[in-house]
Amino acid sequence: MSAAPVLEIRDLKTWFRTDRGVARAVDGVSFEVLPGETLGVVGESGCGKSVTALSVLGLVPKPPGIHAGGQILFEGADLARLGERELEDIRGDRISMIFQEPMTSLNPVFTVGDQIAESVVRHRGVSRGEAMGVAVDMLQKVGIPSPESRVRDYPHQMSGGMRQRVMIAMALACRPTLLVADEPTTALDVTIQAQILELLAQLQRDLHMSVLLITHDLGVVEEVCDRVVVMYAGKVVERATVDDLFDRPLHPYTAGLFRSVPRATGTRAARLEVIPGVVPSPLDFPTGCRFRNRCPAARGPCAEGEPPLVEGAAGHQVACHYPEGTR
């Protein structure tokens, strides 16, 4: 389409060798993140969202993890082939990540200023004094009041929302081009959630970065994402712009997801539905379409071939033999 993607993942496979066999946690995922956009990744618990994110940063523990195939193209390099040293140079500098748990993601024995400054010293090679200056600037940017004195605070002196702001300051101190956010607001209460999302959106504009946002929350997706990738059982089942996806979900799984969340805007009468059954274990996926034994539309051919990801509508891809509306 328009500009070249910042990140392009092609047929990524990240598996785990466990005692009970090989867990195919991520099993052929492809998507791209365009400059300046926010790409949402949604899906049920255990579908491989976090493992995809960790793979991008080379943070999958190996062993038990193995890179079983595919490419992660970022700034002209395939991250899946880089060594640990080269990945360290990229992490925290060109690509950063923030995590779900702000309460435990900061080191309790260092001041927040030290922790922000550490990554600046590591990647910019500046003196500690200069790095502390950057830390104050960053705290200011993420909206922490009186940053000059707050840099000397220890994590336990801050609330969860403030700590998540500090995490964001740490991640963005070196102005990365890509931020991977793995459920950054799940652990926060709703009002703080909204503030953090607003802050991320504002920083994204200021710093011209792309965001890969992993979340459970379809409300969040609708609010902040430009495009969405829906994952199921280690695979991408649907890819579209937010508007297309919410207007006309093509995959029965996506449709099921929408029917299973309460919509603030919806009519009261609309009943919540649950998707029957559970996510299959990555140790033992069903043959053919992995969703078939939970799918209301499943029929004979679904058990035979795995549906490929194909264009179901303009700019809207789906991996289903019988997409919604074609039946």
Partner: peptide, 14 residues
Amino acid sequence: EQDFVQAARALGLP
């Protein structure tokens, strides 16, 4: 196993 170790790794610390 604590989260801050993962966070430190995500910052590229050796």
